[in-house]
Structure formats: structure tokens, C-alpha cells
Design a protein around this nucleic acid. Structure first.
Length: 574
DNA sequence: GCCGTTTTCGGCCCGACTGTTTTCAGTCG
């Protein structure tokens, strides 16, 4: 599957075309095509070979030709042509905050700046401030921007890092300033797995007080911009937070706008224009009379456009607006649907809390059951258990099940798919478990064929019903291991194997693209498990559900939405 | 370069903030 690769190429083409002063709408078309391709669940080469590229929305004759060129000879003529005129290194410069295509071009034209190093030198020698349209402050900002970029302070972070920071800012605003309504918007509300910045929206009669209090918060490291209705700061954790204040009568329009995604909003506004309306963050307006016709709630905005309200997690313009027009938005899975955590560690292996404490937390979360999945033998570093130890654990669980009835604990295991494709125990031993989960914990540097084959082998074992953290990625830590997900999903289809959406916020694995593909193209089902090693990380379930919602999964796609009775039946199926 | 229940040509989302200007361009989301 070469979708990501091709999307990157089109991104590059858009960036260079922008520097080459091409028609801005052409550039938008390249970017739109890149985005659409990135979200496709079918390999682009497959679509291309059937000659069906132009059936995809956003791809026409011109881009289809470029895609074919790239697939056939690894090059896009147009891109090569532009590279002769514009140095590629300018793309890097454009990534510095505050520098866009226009300024980068001016720097190149007037000072022959081609690389970030050239730029740094020129700024330090105070040469930039004399260019038309530049000044002393811009020069200073460029230097700061280069430093921030080199310090790697512009990376996205896991939602599990950003969400608590956002929530604590909200809590403190609520207590100490004249807030009416407040909501975290942006990619956090859309539950995206990684977050670039935090958007908070409030309504208040005294916006200035809010701005003052917000910019004086303890977490603030730098104030980037401070106006009457919008303030942007950088926190000590190097996360940007934008706070926006609007009138209560605009709250719905504003949260719609600030939740995004950008592409979803653009699509909404296009719909509005067709209906002789204008949509912005203040409301919906009649184009003839300029009168406001909606804005207080999100629902009335969607309603006036004649479409169904769309859950924030689906707002990526990947087909949801088309569904909303037909009023066919699915009822996607909710946190309240989850009836038990099915991937969790206790003190028997490397967990911090006892099974009894995990039960108490589960009951607090209104769960009906729990599957304890302590590590198996081969993972020595995590206190992997022998069969004898598991039998001991089984006895403990039986006791607790009597005490906490009707709540029920099941004995599971997290097996290791070893480097040779085998697992910790033989089939006879595996019979003692209510359910077996298996995953890769070692040998992640192996070649694609080897890793894929290891998992395929595991799938053939009839006792293994779940593959955990299937691609091995750690957000901000390590990439997915090389794995042919299509081959793995295809094998899993014939065994009915369940795939995990690991809810631990540094994993979130499967991600939304793979989960959606597993469902749409292979009809697979899922388990959302926290992989918690203590009671407090059991609340990470919300992030896993977020991924599932972004993959458009419904309740029936997720096995741990079953009630206890159905779940027990499911366990006995094998 | 894409797209079409008002269009196959002429459109293509919209506003805030900054720094540079002296009414606005550039950047950002």
C-alpha cells in the first residue's frame, strides 16, 4: 500500500508549487488530493490499476496522471520541473512559524537564502530587518522559530498528554474568572490520537478579564498573541493553547468552527453558500438580508444546512457530510457502551494493583466484568507467569468472584508471539484460560515478511482470539514495526480473530485508519482494552473509544460492549 | 486542478492577530 508515500509526494508538490507562485487553487487541489489519498482504506495502486482514480472525489484528470506517473516511474514530471526552479530546501524554511511562501520567496530572491542555516546567519547579522515587509520583530521571531524547531518543540503529543493539561486549564478558568460556558474544542474534541495545540472556547460578558486571567496562569511560558477575543500562549510543556471568547448567541457556531476539522468546516461552508447562507464562527447568516439565522447551538447549524448533526470524532470530511445529507450517520460506539476492560495487568505480573483493587475500580466505572491478562512466561522483564502461577491466579479469581458476584473476573493471558513465530505455551496448557490474547513484545526490528509471518502463525492457533497492540507503535517513541496489515487482516478474517484498539494513550494501536480498514475491507471485530498496569490508567478507556469512534465503529463491532451474559457465551464459543 | 439539483466556465471558506504599514499583507487555524 503506497497511499502515505503518494500523499507525501503530493504534499511536497503543493509546497514547491506554492513557492513557485502557482495558482493557489491548484495548490489546494494538490493538498486536497493528498488528504483524500491518506484516508483511503484501499491501496491507491489497486485503484490506479483498475483505471478508477478519477472516481475519487478530489482527483481529476491532472492529478490522476501524476499519480500514474509516480506509480510507474517513481517520479512526477511536474515536481521534477519545479525543483529545477526552486530549491527543495526552502520547504524546510517554510515550516518555521511566521514564515509562509511569500516571505520565504522574498528571502530567497533578495538575500539568496536557501537553507535554515543561511537564514539563521542572515538574521544574526541583522540583514533581514531591512527587507520590504520585514522588520526587527520579524527578524527576532525567525530566530526564535529556528530555535524552537531545532529543539523539536513543535511535535504533536498524544491526546493523553494534552487532554489533562486542557482539563486543568478549564477547571481553573471556571473557578477564577467570569465564565458562562466553556468547552475544549479542536482536535481534542475530535479525539484525534495526537494533538498539535489546545483550543478552548468560552462565552462571557467580560472577555477582557478572561484574557487577563488566562495569560497570567501558572502554566504559561510565552504569550504569543493577546487580543480582545483571542489569546494564544505556550505552556511550560511546550503546547500551544488558544483561548477564544464569543457571545452566548454564537456559542454553537463557535464550537462548530473551532472543533474543525478544517476540511469539514470548508465543506460545511460550501453547503451554506449553496443554500444562500454564510457560516462563520459567529453564526449562520442569510446572504441577502445579512441577518443571523442560527448560532446558539451546533444542532441548529447542522439542521439549517439540511443535514444530520455529526459527532465530532467523525468530522474529517472523509464522507461523513455525504452520510449526514442522507441522514445516515451511524450510531457510533460510546464510552457508556463499554461493559468491561479486557486487557489489564495485576500484581501477579507487572501490574501495580491487586485484582481486588481492579475489581473495585471496575465497579466504580459501572463495568460488569474484567479480564485479567497478566504477561506470560517468555516476557521475563514483566514478571511473565508460568502455567502453575496462572493456576494459582485462577484460584484467587474464583474466590473474588464469590465475593463480588454478580461482577465477574475472567482469567486471560497476554501471550508473546516469539521471534520464531511460536508462543509461550503448548495447546494443552492454553486450555486453562477463558481467553488468550497475544502480541509482539520482542524482535520488532525484524523484516516485514518475518513479522507478518509471525502474526499469521499466531492467527492459526485456535486458542488465540485476540491480537494486542497489532502494529507496535509508541506515539512519540517508535514507529509501527514493519507489518503487512492487509495480509494479517486477511488471514484473521478466516479465523474470526479480534483485533485490539489499545487504549493506552502512548499506543492507541490499532489507529483509526487501520481499524476502519479492518472493519470495512475485512469485516473484523475489535476489543478496546486499556493495557492498564494500575487502577488509575483504567480511565484511559476514553481514548480507545475515541479511536473507535474516529474509525466509525458501532457498538456491535466491539466485543467488550457485550453484557456479562453475552460475553460469557462469546468466551465459550471456542 | 477540481467541480456542477441554478454552472462544462468561473467559481473555489472565513476571520483574528501581528507587524508592517498609514490602509493592509502575510500568516495562521
Amino acid at each position: 500500500m503506497r497511499n502515505k508515500e503518494l500523499a507525501d509526494k503530493l504534499h511536497e508538490l503543493a509546497e514547491i508549487a506554492e513557492l513557485a507562485n502557482e495558482n493557489p487553487f491548484k495548490i489546494r487541489a494538490y493538498l486536497e488530493a493528498a488528504r483524500v489519498i491518506e484516508n483511503l482504506t484501499t491501496p491507491i495502486e489497486e485503484i490506479a490499476s483498475k483505471g478508477k482514480l478519477e472516481e475519487i472525489r478530489g482527483i481529476g484528470k491532472g492529478i490522476a496522471e501524476k499519480i500514474n506517473q509516480y506509480l510507474q516511474k517513481g517520479k512526477i514530471d511536474k515536481l521534477e520541473e519545479l525543483k529545477k526552479k526552486i530549491p527543495e530546501t526552502l520547504i524546510e524554511i517554510e515550516k518555521i512559524p511566521g514564515l509562509g511562501a511569500k516571505r520565504v520567496k522574498a528571502l530567497y530572491k533578495d538575500l539568496h537564502i536557501q537553507t535554515v542555516d543561511d537564514l539563521k546567519k542572515a538574521a544574526e547579522e541583522c540583514k533581514i530587518r531591512y527587507l520590504e515587509g520585514f522588520g526587527e520583530k520579524t527578524e527576532q521571531k525567525i530566530l526564535e522559530g529556528i530555535k524552537a524547531m531545532r529543539d523539536k518543540k513543535v511535535d504533536r503529543v498524544s491526546i493523553g498528554i494534552a487532554m489533562p493539561i486542557a482539563e486543568s486549564i478549564v477547571d481553573s478558568l471556571k473557578v477564577h474568572s467570569p465564565i458562562d460556558k466553556i468547552l475544549i474544542c479542536g482536535s481534542i474534541r475530535r479525539m484525534k490520537d495526537t494533538i498539535g495545540d489546545i483550543d478552548i472556547l468560552v462565552t462571557s460578558k467580560e472577555p477582557l478579564k478572561i484574557m487577563d486571567y488566562f495569560s497570567s496562569l501558572d502554566v504559561v511560558k510565552v504569550i504569543i498573541a493577546k487580543g480582545d477575543t483571542k489569546t494564544s500562549i505556550i505552556t511550560k510543556e511546550n503546547l500551544q493553547v488558544d483561548l477564544r471568547v464569543v457571545e452566548p448567541s454564537s456559542f454553537g457556531a463557535a464550537i462548530q468552527y473551532f472543533t474543525g476539522s478544517k476540511q469539514h468546516n470548508v465543506h460545511m461552508r460550501e453547503l451554506a453558500i449553496k443554500r444562500n447562507l454564510k457560516l462563520n464562527e459567529y453564526g449562520m447568516f442569510d446572504l441577502d438580508t445579512n441577518k443571523k439565522v442560527a448560532g446558539g447551538t451546533e444542532e441548529e447549524i447542522y439542521d439549517l444546512l439540511g443535514i444530520q448533526w455529526v459527532p465530532p470524532e467523525m468530522r474529517e470530511d472523509t464522507g461523513e457530510i455525504e452520510l449526514a445529507l442522507k441522514r445516515k450517520i451511524p450510531k457510533i460506539v460510546e464510552l457508556e457502551d463499554i461493559k468491561g476492560d479486557v486487557h489489564i495487568h495485576s500484581t501477579y505480573s507487572d501490574g501495580r494493583d491487586s485484582i481486588e483493587e481492579l475489581i473495585k475500580q471496575s465497579i466504580k466505572m459501572s463495568y460488569e466484568y474484567l479480564v485479567i491478562t497478566d504477561h506470560a512466561r517468555a516476557l521475563g522483564v514483566a514478571g511473565g507467569l508460568s502455567i502453575e502461577k496462572y493456576l494459582e491466579e485462577r484460584k484467587g479469581i474464583d474466590e473474588l468472584n464469590k465475593k463480588y458476584k454478580p461482577f465477574k473476573v475472567f482469567l486471560g493471558t497476554e501471550l508473546n508471539i516469539l521471534t520464531n513465530g511460536e508462543i509461550d505455551f503448548n495447546d494443552d496448557d492454553l486450555k486453562i484460560f477463558d481467553i488468550c490474547l497475544a502480541g509482539i513484545h520482542t524482535g520488532m526490528g525484524q523484516k516485514k515478511e518475518q513479522i507478518t509471518q509471525r502474526i499469521v502463525n499466531a492467527l492459526k492457533n485456535k486458542y488465540i482470539r485476540v491480537i494486542v497492540h497489532p502494529t507496535g507503535r509508541i506515539i512519540g517513541g517508535r514507529d509501527e514495526y514493519k507489518i503487512d496489515v492487509d495480509a494479517v487482516f486477511s488471514e484473521a478474517k478466516s479465523h474470526g480473530t479480534i483485533f485490539e484498539i489499545n487504549a493506552s494513550f502512548e499506543r492507541l494501536d490499532l489507529n483509526e485508519v487501520n481499524a476502519r480498514k479492518a472493519k470495512d475491507n475485512f469485516g473484523l471485530r475489535f476489543e478496546i482494552g486499556t493495557d492498564a498496569h494500575s487502577t488509575d490508567s483504567m480511565t484511559n478507556m476514553r481514548y480507545g473509544v475515541g479511536v473507535a469512534r474516529r474509525a466509525w465503529l458501532v457498538k456491535e463491532d466491539v466485543i467488550n460492549t457485550m453484557n456479562l451474559k453475552d460475553f460469557e457465551k462469546f468466551l465459550k464459543l471456542k
